[in-house]
Every structure is written in structure tokens, then in C-alpha cells.
Amino acid sequence: MDELMEVLRRALPKVNWETDQALVDDGIIDSMDVVSVISEITDEYDIEIPSEEMEPENFNSVQAIYEMIQRLTEE
């Protein structure tokens, strides 16, 4: 989780990743930000994020992103 936090801070340094739990729903990050996040995590974890995972709830918090990565790396 700490490693992911570093990756996300690198992608979007201004976001308060520790506390915000509704990043997409509250408009804290937008679609362009999500593209930046995807770009960082696909490079870092060598995974492809399939289109069916493109749901706001998968990007609402660090925990949600972490769980999505876990799911994809286990597959």
C-alpha cells in the first residue's frame, strides 16, 4: 500500500491520497487525472487495466485502486 501511495503521489501530487475517499464522486480528480493514474500504475505494476474496470468506484480512493490492482495481478 505504501508503494502504491508513492506511485499515486507521483501521478497527482496535489491530491490528498491519505484522507479522500470519494475522489471521483466529489470531483477531486477528473477523467484526465484518472488517465494519469492509469498510466502510472500500468507502468509500475506491468498490468493492463481492462475497459470493464473503468468504473468511478475503482478510482475513488487508494484502497479502491489497491484492490483493483490486487484483482488484476491475481488473474
Binding site: 471521483v24 470531483g27 477528473d30 477523467s31 484526465m32 484518472v34 488517465v35 475497459s51 473503468m54 468504473e55
Partner: peptide, 9 residues
């Protein structure tokens, strides 16, 4: 809507 990335929405 905010872009098309969340295309299901």
C-alpha cells in the same frame, strides 16, 4: 459528464 473514460456511466 466528465469525459468518456467512465463509459458505462
Amino acid at each position: 459528464l466528465d469525459g468518456v473514460i467512465f463509459y458505462k456511466k
